[in-house]
Design a protein around this nucleic acid. Sequence first.
DNA 1: TTTATATCCTACCGCTTTGGTGGGATATTG
DNA 2: CAATATCCCACCAAAGCGGTAGGATATAAA
Lengths: 145, 145
Amino acid sequence: MKITAKTEYGVRAIMQVASSTNLTQVKEIAKKQNIPERFLEQVMSLLKKGGLVEAVRGAGGGYQLARHAKKITLRNIIEAIEGPINLMECLGEEEELKCGSASSACVVRDVFRGVQSTVAAAFNSITLADLVEKQNKSSAPTYHI
Amino acid sequence: MKITAKTEYGVRAIMQVASSTNLTQVKEIAKKQNIPERFLEQVMSLLKKGGLVEAVRGAGGGYQLARHAKKITLRNIIEAIEGPINLMECLGEEEELKCGSASSACVVRDVFRGVQSTVAAAFNSITLADLVEKQNKSSAPTYHI
DNA sequence: TTTATATCCTACCGCTTTGGTGGGATATTG
DNA sequence: CAATATCCCACCAAAGCGGTAGGATATAAA
């Protein structure tokens, strides 16, 4: 569950999409967010595969949200891009077989599992709408007296 | 801040060291915990460099805790092995320069930074003594009736 | 003083992941 | 049909991961 550049790109990109009521193109996002265009293409494809955005192909096409920004969580975005959240390899529901050694392994993993749930919950509680709002607050107030 | 096998090995190894009042040897840990011996050597070296354990060299040597198990946190262990905890690359105090694009980058990073502090705090609150105790509780009760 | 033992240090190796580039197929508008 | 934009797949260099190996160094016991 390391947060890679790809994930950050994805979050920023979908924020950009959420900020517009019209279709948003990869080229536009890439320029405004300073992200390699061809690379961003692939990220957008993941967001689409994850059902978070919809694409309109052809000239004049672009991307739009697949549902309201309040219904998209940061966790949704992360998991669309990086797959299921797990702090360590063996915490993925099925792979607990190879519990290498005695109980110590399980104890350690239990602890990590707990932290992992905390993280997942945190990401779950933040929506795309929250992110966009936070951004507006931090950049908008140019009207000082 | 991905938790790798190396980190799990390290935690289990230092738990083993903490479980004994005498010196504990790499060979012994490797066997009991089912960890490649030469690999574990390097992990122990990191724990030593991090000031968590002390080594006694030569025949009959081994490792012991450098301070009481209550004074060693899980965070100490993780950071000794993996370096500073950061959820993503650019969250390491100094590297915020390359804030790629506009404010969206900062907003995203602020959010991740927040989660990161939560994780760090969680790891900070768990001591080596806690881990050992938890292990004893989960394995000891062989006396049924 | 030699020998056995155990830590220490450094290099290497195969494999996967990461961050990106590039070629072109496909769909849509005009 | 041309222009435009998404889509799909292959490739690449660099870094990280898990592990192996060689040998130097320190110490205890013979």
